[in-house]
Design a protein around this nucleic acid. Structure first.
Length: 941
RNA sequence: GGGCCUGUAGCUCAGUUGGUUAGAGCACUGUGCUGAUAACGCAGGGGUCAGUGGUUCGAAUCCACUCAGGCCCA
């Protein structure tokens, strides 16, 4: 009789599919979480618990979210969920940075010429719609990524309350004297009469004069260059913008370069002239200017030239030689004409040396009255006249024409000039702000720790912060000017009034209301007593807005703790949000707004190169979500060390799916074998569990410990690796493989099977929670199955982190099992050899004799002799003690000294039920195909 | 050009204060099983530790330079 013994086995049974089908399931989970108000439920569950505040840095709302922005939110989400499961109250308020040029620029491009007929308010309304549209789209994408948070109440920098908080910060800074107004050069389009941002420039080729000119030295140089030579001496400079020469205030040299004094005969005056140029440029300069027959008189490093005075090329005044390390040898003479009102670097040098910032050019690009004989002339048109004037004065050495790339206006395509205008600044020196910031940096924990030196270096050398922009889409700077005398009205009382107005009506009121309506009743000019004012046209730099979030969001929300526990952004924010938040927080509250700053690298392509749309290697959140479910994306981002740059491609993400399936299959196996397990009734107490199951608990407890530490240190790639390796090594290839015999063939309710099920239950329950912050959907899916077996929280995301189980630790047991596993590896290797030779197929066809000459091993193996067949998954194992050197000649040596192995066919016949070979098969009349063990187990049933 | 950072098998990562033959998982190849089966097991191949030059008895590890890449400046 060939009975179907398969029916007598306890085979795994579960509807938990090998195929995840996440594309369908994820939206279902999302809507269920929404229905059950998961986020609020978590808040209620953690009410009164210690707080943990991760303050979200606001991304810019755009049509195509960079996958890196998605990664950033995923990392934040992992942390928030981990802390929440750690029984902390960790709310997450997402935000968006809605003002700023990119949106204004896009809206203006869309509107094109229609913009001219629209009011500022109308244009701002367009910008608002644009921003809100993308906030909405982005919100959906972040939610699809499985990120949890108060998505119904995010913070937007365009919210009235947020805008008023920006003014609160401004007011405090005005009161403390941080705010001042000063000239600064900016890109200016004189045909549109407007300031232009970097993004509004387009570079085109343009022809300009390229001139070398002498700046006559007044200071004696005999001491620097001792020699017989006399005659007029000069510093030679080069420029392609002769019109900026009236604004010249200094000449910059590099402190480290060598400078030479050169003599040459002037072909016109027949005089010997002397001039200073950088040694490294001399040959080229001579070639370009046609200077022949020169000789070098002497050589000094640039720093010794500092302070020499020369005569201004236009006006009757003296100007100094200064030092600057941006001077290069590639073009020019290594001596750089410096006009602080006409260039960025020039401006910084001007600030450094306390030079005046002059810019005798008006909004139409014409010289002002200060440049007497050129007043009213357009600066670019005046170039030639200036060149001729220099020639007349004998200052011009050479004149050529150069074609070079030059900034033009994005709208009218006319060339742009650098022109100094009045701008608003935050002083870094007032009240020692810079030093205070550097002190606070020391109190913050920077992860990785090099973040500290990075931000220190930036703080140490950054100039005062220019906070004004000549745009419309932003928070207006709440200052006024006296219509009568032009005096600035920068007054805390006035600002206080604006704070109130902004809170009620938003910053739009600035554009909608008249000065009279914006100002309190009794305001008059402190200078002339005038009562009519004009409001400021400038708005705040968007960084001033986002840098105010610590107040607008964290301080003003009682749910959150200030200072925040964590800020987490890319390393670009060391200069951006981290630094500017730090400055504003210190200026207004004397402390850093964060305790820990964690940074991640940039998402780059597979080759490690920058992602950009033009290169075609750009991956958007939307694009990634179309190809992969969120859990796969989350697993991928958890698997890499995000502290460095993250090389990503769709192909790489695809590969992580394999690992996902491994983890998923581990769950499937566990759930399948727990289908008839009820923890309340079937659980076996630790002391009564079999050793192999206690070994498993010991292993999972160690895993829990390592994984918890990794989460605490934000090392999610270690979490991933630990869990994956645990699934593969401890579970799949050993424990779960060995277990099959116990689970399938032993009595369903017998002590062995229940012992193992107890371990599987604990492992599944722990593993699910260890993975919940990363695989938010899959963990929930597993949790549902666990919940059907016993009373558990409604969602895994409401559950608590698996507790430490010290009683599961068993060092003695671990040590013994580690050794048994070493022997197992040797046995398996040998079985493979026999399999290769065709002697066996499945390992159950084999029997093994372990010959042991080592007393310690012998003791261990004798103790576990009955366990060994199970561990090796063979049908029988015999342990044979031998005296040293007396091994069977046929026995195979192993890596373990004193141990040799003999492999042969197992004795007896194959049991039709458990498939093991046993001499007892055939002994039983009713079941001639079964072994004794199976008969026994079936009897228990 | 400057500051900070990165560079270990095809991929993702480990490699204590410098110390045997540089490890793991995945992928790959071969193979077994067919009661985890759109699974699972076993075995195997694969690395000039970016390069060069130093320090040292000894360097993936320390130092210098170079190359490639990233972020932020200029």
């Amino acid at each position: 009789m060939n009975k179907n013994y398969k029916d007598t086995l306890n085979l795994p049974k579960t509807s938990f599919g090998m195929r995840a089908n996440l594309a369908q399931k994820e939206p279902q989970f999302l809507s269920r979480w929404k229905e059950m108000k998961l986020y609020s439920r978590i808040r209620e569950a953690r009410l009164g618990k210690p707080k943990y505040t991760l303050h979200d840095g606001p991304p810019y709302p755009t049509g195509d979210l960079h996958i890196g922005t998605g990664m950033n939110k995923i990392l934040k989400d992992i942390i928030v969920r981990f802390q929440t499961m750690g029984d902390l109250d960790a709310p997450f308020i997402p935000g968006w940075d809605c003002h700023g040029l990119p949106i204004e620029h896009k809206v203006m491009t869309e509107l094109a010429s229609r913009a001219q007929e629209m009011t500022d308010s109308q244009i701002r309304q367009r910008c608002r719609q644009f921003a809100l549209r993308y906030v909405e789209a982005n919100r959906k994408q972040f939610q699809s990524l499985g990120c949890i948070g108060d998505w119904d109440n995010p913070y937007l920098t365009i919210n009235p309350r947020y805008e008023s908080a920006v003014l609160k910060i401004f007011k405090l800074m005005v009161e403390k004297g941080y705010i001042y107004r000063e000239l600064k050069p900016i890109h200016w389009c004189f045909s549109c009469r407007t300031a232009l941002a970097e993004a509004e420039l387009e570079y085109r080729d343009r022809e300009d004069p390229s001139i070398y000119l002498h700046l006559p030295l007044i200071s004696p140089i005999d001491r620097l260059f001792p020699g017989e030579e006399t005659g007029p001496a000069s510093i030679l400079v080069w420029t392609t913008t002769p019109w900026t020469l009236p604004g010249n205030l200094a000449t910059a040299v590099h402190p480290e370069f060598q400078y030479v004094l050169v003599t040459y005969p002037d072909p016109e005056s027949k005089q010997i002239r002397r001039m200073i140029v950088a040694e490294g440029t001399l040959e080229r300069v001579a070639r370009e200017t046609g200077v022949a027959g020169y000789s070098i008189v002497g050589k000094v490093p640039g720093r010794e030239l500092e302070g020499l005075l020369y005569r201004h090329p236009w006006f009757d005044k003296e100007c100094p030689v200064i030092l600057a390390d941006y001077v290069n040898l590639e073009d020019g003479t290594g001596c750089v004409h410096t006009a602080p009102g006409h260039g960025q670097e020039d401006y910084l040098s001007g600030r450094k040396y306390g030079l005046e910032i002059i810019s005798p050019v008006d909004g139409d690009g014409a010289f002002t009255d200060e440049v007497t004989d050129l007043a009213g002339r357009n600066v670019l048109e005046a170039n030639e006249m200036i060149v001729e004037r220099l020639r007349g004065k004998g200052l011009l050495l050479s004149r050529q024409t150069i074609s070079h790339s030059y900034p033009h206006c994005w709208r009218c395509h006319q060339p742009v000039i650098f022109r100094a205008t009045r701008q608003w600044f935050v002083s870094l020196t007032n009240r020692g702000l810079r030093e205070k910031a550097l002190d606070e940096v020391e109190r913050v924990r920077w992860v990785p720790n090099w973040g500290k030196s990075r931000i220190r270096a930036m703080l140490e050398r950054r100039p005062d912060w220019c906070i004004s922009r000549q745009r419309k889409w932003g928070v207006p700077i709440p200052v006024f000017y006296c219509r009568k005398c032009g005096e600035i009205l920068l007054d805390p009382g006035v600002i206080e009034n604006m704070i109130r107005l902004f809170e009620e009506r938003g910053s739009d009121c600035w554009f909608e209301l008249s000065e009279e309506d914006l100002l309190p009743q009794d305001v008059s000019c402190s200078h002339c007593g005038g009562r009519k004012f004009k409001k400021e046209n400038d708005i705040f730099d968007v960084w001033f807005e986002s840098g105010s979030s610590h107040r607008a969001v964290v301080m003003e929300n009682s749910e959150l703790r200030y200072p925040a526990d964590l800020y987490l952004e890319g390393t670009d924010q060391h200069r951006g949000w981290f630094q500017l938040s730090l400055l504003l927080a210190i200026a207004t509250t004397d402390q850093a707004p964060f305790r820990t700053v964690l940074t991640h690298g940039f998402v780059v392509d597979q080759k490690g190169e920058k992602m950009s749309k033009s290169r075609g290697n750009f991956i958007s959140v939307e694009g990634a979500l179309k190809k992969f479910p969120a859990d796969i994306l989350r697993l991928w981002f958890s698997s890499v060390d995000y502290r460095k740059d993250i090389g990503v491609s769709l192909d790489l993400i695809r590969k992580i799916s394999e690992s996902y399936r491994k983890i998923r299959n581990t769950f499937k196996y566990c759930l399948g074998n727990l289908s008839d397990f009820k923890p309340e009734t079937d659980r076996v107490p630790l002391g009564e569990m079999d050793e192999i199951d206690r070994w498993a608990l010991q292993e999972v407890e160690e895993l829990r410990d390592r994984v918890t530490r990794a989460y605490q240190k934000f090392e999610f790639h270690k979490v991933y690796r630990e869990i994956h390796n645990f699934s593969v090594i401890q579970m799949s290839s050993f424990y779960m493989d060995v277990l099959k015999d116990r689970l399938y063939t032993y009595a369903a309710n017998g002590p062995e099977r229940r012992s193992t099920q107890t371990a599987l239950w604990e492992i599944t329950s722990i593993l699910t929670r260890l993975l919940a912050p990363i695989l938010v959907f899959t963990a929930e899916e597993v949790w549902e199955y666990l919940r059907s077996m016993t009373d558990l929280e409604e969602s895994v995301h409401l559950s608590l982190w698996p507790a430490e189980q010290p009683e599961w630790r068993d060092e003695g047991l671990k040590e013994k099992w580690d050794r048994l596993l070493l022997l197992r590896a040797e046995a398996l290797k040998l079985l493979e050899k026999y399999r290769g030779e065709g002697m066996i197929g499945t390992s159950l066809e084999a029997g093994i004799v372990v010959q042991v000459a080592d007393p310690e091993w012998e003791h261990l193996l004798k103790e576990y002799e009955d366990e060994l067949p199970k561990l090796f998954i063979v049908s029988e194992v015999e342990v044979q003690p031998v005296t040293k050197g007396d091994f069977d000649p046929a026995a195979h040596a192993t890596e373990l000294p004193g141990i040799r192995l003999l492999v042969g066919r197992a004795r007896g016949e194959k049991c039709a039920r458990c498939w093991k070979y046993s001499p007892t098969v055939g002994d039983f009349r009713d079941h001639p195909q079964l072994c004794a063990q199976c008969l026994e187990q079936m009897a228990i049933c």
